[in-house]
Design a protein around this nucleic acid. Structure first.
Lengths: 218, 218
DNA sequence: AAACTATTCAACATAATTATTGAATGGCAT
DNA sequence: ATGCCATTCAATAATTATGTTGAATAGTTT
């Protein structure tokens, strides 16, 4: 344990990964990239960052192994390549959610009031989909839907959801999902659906978690 | 997503947890506290930090929910209270190990050369312990052993291992473990045991992982 | 080859983190 | 109460992170 031991150097590398997770903009980018591959300027506008700044964040995350990139024509596309990264982000969210007092307030004050009912678990939704008893609604933007979604899911981005309501069968429960457990789209969609008389709940988390757990995707 | 949305604030909290993981000294402290509860000055000397500095690191980790503390007489004792934190640290190590190129070099250059054989998995060790075919060696310091260890394990801190060698049966395999997958003690112990003619391997990870996976402890 | 475009780099100002020092707090024991 | 000890706080200096700007690069398209 004297001077920089090999073990301490390892821990220094691990700490670099931690540092890379230590910025909210980067966590937003990570969530976006958990949905699908995206180019730098695409990400920059989605995360409301300058291109140069987004590029720097991306470079850092690639350096510590959270992301990989490839060239496609004029664009450089980044993505999350390692399922272990999704585990890591999920674990981070879990600890954050459970333990940070202020987070509890935000979760309680904003999210819970829009979702009196408990969310649906992946297993439960999977079972009810087999029985054909449920309408599955993907409320993410169309591009993310196209890059992969739950089987039988209907894409209904929030802005267009109101128009699509008439096409949904009223006699079936609706389960809405989006990017992940803290994605506001699903909460808003459930609120809107209930206003219009639907029996609606949200999936406990989002598409990346569904896919990572080995359940089928289209 | 306009201005500080509730979701972005949540991500800011998550990022604070990430930041707390973004320092190698704090990761060392976390590993120590994954073994057992410890006081501030105890930790400070174990991690080779000043007391004031250790106190600051501990306060930060407590703030974001990685640690909790309680008073015991004149001392304040810190510990890891939430199993989700162990998951998080494990996920961090996994990503770091898999993806950071320099880590691979360190692992390859230092650890692997001391451990030609593959480590033993928890399941394998558990099975062989049931069959009574193996000597289990806990090479952590005595205080950590006393706070909890694998059933039937013999405590042999590295410094005393050489003296204890004569008491170990030579006809049985030895499996050594310590604090976690990157704890040097187990590597050193295996090297020493092999020098003395034992058939020795190390457990793939350490005591906290064993305990967290629900296996029995003494 | 030239013009174009997406991305990265470099330099900078600002802000945050880190470790140190020494002082302050607040239980505990005499 | 008084002194003692472990811990925390406050102030500081050095280091590192962040986001902007504008320029450089490198690959594509015309």
């Amino acid at each position: 344990m004297s001077s920089p031991s090999p073990k301490f150097e390892l821990f220094t590398r691990f700490a670099e990964v931690g540092k890379a997770l230590g910025n909210s903009h980067r966590l937003v980018i990570l969530e976006l990239l958990a949905q699908r591959e995206r180019s730098v300027d695409d990400l920059a506008s989605a995360a409301r960052l300058s291109v140069a700044n987004a590029s720097q964040h991306l470079r850092l995350m690639r350096k510590v192994g959270l992301l990989v990139s490839r060239r496609n024509g004029a664009h450089i596309l980044y993505r999350v390549n390692d399922p272990a990264v999704l585990d890591l982000v999920a674990a981070l969210h879990r600890v954050g959610e459970r333990n940070v007092a202020e987070v509890r307030e935000i979760v309680g004050g904003y999210f819970r009031e829009r979702d009196a009912l408990e969310p649906v678990s992946r297993q439960e939704l999977s079972r009810r989909m087999r029985d054909g008893l449920v309408t599955v609604l993907d409320v993410r933007p169309e591009d993310e839907f196209d890059a992969g979604h739950l089987p039988q899911a209907i894409n209904a981005p929030l802005r267009e959801l109101e128009k699509q309501l008439r096409d949904l069968p009223k006699d079936r429960d609706v389960v809405a999902y989006c990017r992940g457990p803290y994605c506001v789209f699903a909460f808003e969609a459930v609120a809107l659906l209930r206003q219009h008389g639907f029996s609606a709940r949200r999936l406990e988390d989002g598409f990346p978690e569904w896919k990572a757990s080995g359940l089928p995707v289209d």
